[in-house]
Write a protein that binds this DNA or RNA. Sequence first.
DNA 1: TTGCCACAAATTTTT
DNA 2: TTTGTGGCAA
Length: 768
Amino acid sequence: MTLSHEPPADLGLDGLNPPQIEAVVHAHGPLIVFAGAGSGKTRVITYRIANLLATHRVPPYRILAVTFTNKAAQEMRDRLETIMGGGIARDLWVGTFHSMCVRLLRVHHELAGLGRNFVIYDTADQKAVMKRVLKELRIDEKRYPPQKVLARIGKEKQEARGPEDFEVNHYFDDVILRCFKAYERHLQAANAVDFSDLLLRVLRLAEDPECPAYDDLRSRFSHVLVDEFQDVNQVQYRLVRALAGEGDNICVVGDDDQCIYQWRGADIRNIRGFTRDFPNAKLVKLEQNYRSSGNIVSAALGVIRHSADRQPKELWTDNSDGSPVGIVHCSNERDEAAWVVDQLKRRIANGISPRDLAVFYRVHAQSRVLEDVMRHENVPYQIVGGQKFFDRSEVKDLLSYLRVLVNPQSDVDLFRIINVPARKIGKKTIDALLAMANENRCSAQESIVALCGTDRVGTAAKRALRSLDELLQELMVMAETAPPLEVAEAVLERTGYSAWLEKQDTAEADARVDNLRELLGSITEFEEEQADAGEIATLSDYLARISLISDVDTMQDVARVPMMTVHAAKGLEFDGVFITGMEERLFPLRGGDPGEEDQLEEERRLAYVAITRGRKELFITHTNMRMIYGQTRYNQPSRFLLELPHGTHQAMQTEALSQLPTPRAAWGKPRMDRFQTHGEFEAAAARQASLRPQGERYIETEGEAGFGGDDGDDMGETVVIRPGARVRHPKFGVGVVRAVNMGQDPVITVKFAGWAPKRIKLSFLSMA
DNA sequence: TTGCCACAAATTTTT
DNA sequence: TTTGTGGCAA
């Protein structure tokens, strides 16, 4: 069996391709491409650019191509370099929205109201700023958690609204507004921007005809191309429109079925907006999938078919059916991990490279068990994303030092390192410094000298502050001229950070030293890269670069099995894919509160994305019982599994599951005493869950609801819920049933210890 | 001021 | 399960 997974080899410049592809490559004027999964869209964009360069002689620096990740940008560069040669790719503007905006802001920083060495605050930094704001405004952190306030503000900024556009609707909105204003003020004072600002600041310049940079921004690019257009938000879309300027050489490529970032502000309506803004836009559909086997494509279609409100299109493939999609029933998450790892091992033993396989999960929390088993079985793997390297405390410490040196106004960074390593500057001193800075409306670092001129702190504190200040001043002078690596090394030495770690002499401290070494390595790498590009490596460029690396960017091209969340898998493809945890409540993921319908839709698209990553083989696992976040859950198989068309998949189960004791056990939670060992007990519990027929779990009786069928089928006895029965809820624990409301989705009133009686859907309850 | 301990809270996906 | 916070003693 051979599968043709590649688009026609001659794709590109000579007119021998399917007409749709030719259209994308050669079309003039605005163009919108609906590109189904695996239709080779990135490749098509690449060839369109190549065509612009080669046939139309467009200078490379006049072309802007926006990708979703830095990795995708790099790949596009590499491909173009392979096709064109001559180092032409170097002058192209290829990158993410964020990296492109950093570049533009470096040019126009003054007009944007920023110092040249502005720094980028990540979510942790934002939180630190917000905490300070709340403290300053004397707002209770409990009632207004920093995260929540930031989320609200973030939503506003995502829609290009500042404090002046803020509408006060709810009773707590005026607090939010006050925080919003103070937050913006603090960022400004710190010469810092958050992720949204990066885009927003450029947008403000590019949309303001009065702005001196207006013309430069709008005429800089003659051709603009955007990949993954379905995940573009309001601000990004307006940015694209502005940068395309008066011309209409704009090409956007996307797939509404793969929109998985609505929670981050992605707006499918932009697709409609595009056809409205560019009424003469040509529309091309790429519907042939070159990537996946027939069975995988059918499975994907089965899931996405149920999606509401999608653009009409038909994905199809010429590829042979391949092997059926394996739906693997496992007993618990350890069993699941063991099965997956065993399969990986077999394939690797058969000569498949680990890098051609991949394991996906819905949330990072699932990775730990998989990692344990991988390590135990000596299967080489890499976690893509997750606890990020740059989030480790020692790494953040060093970076904070560097950021303070580059930008002394960055208070968040100063406070992070002010007493690391310990230099006898404690809470009281810090509070005094904070108060001073707020009074004088200046940065904390500037306030050091001022504070030392008062008697608000003791002499010991003054001495500590002074010596820190002197140290920072010296290093700052150095940072102006010395290469980044030298500065970083000096910081570690002169601040005593290295000595401090070494003195600890614990395994943990050693690991930290290693991490710092790795960070120095990354600086070296950056320096070399810049040298190759003929540019001078500056600290602030380095800092900006690492603020913007995404999860997938950290994926190395090494012989290890990549493991990642489904989100991170977007845009990637593998010969063999294992999707784990396909269970209700996990995938689709359901949080605490009412599961919104459109959230389910996004989960569905996410499942579609996951499935379509596979080229030849796809396995989807689900368990009866899963320990996650320290709690055991008994989950049904995902509804998405039920939507797979017949004949495309094959049900399998792990050995542990097939060795279960007799399935006649009752449907309620089995009693421990009926089983000899805990293993059997678990297995029986698992078995019960698996036996519940989908969609008919609850049979209506008068005032009673059961966890099982009671209509005389042969599935075992029914456990009946009636007032007085004891039930268990994953969050509230064990409670007593007060009342039962029947219906399609029975609602039970339950009294839990310590809570007022709650009305809860039966599906959330299990037997106690 | 520092470091330790106990307790509480949260727990999606990310540029 | 992990992470953060707050209080307390040295």
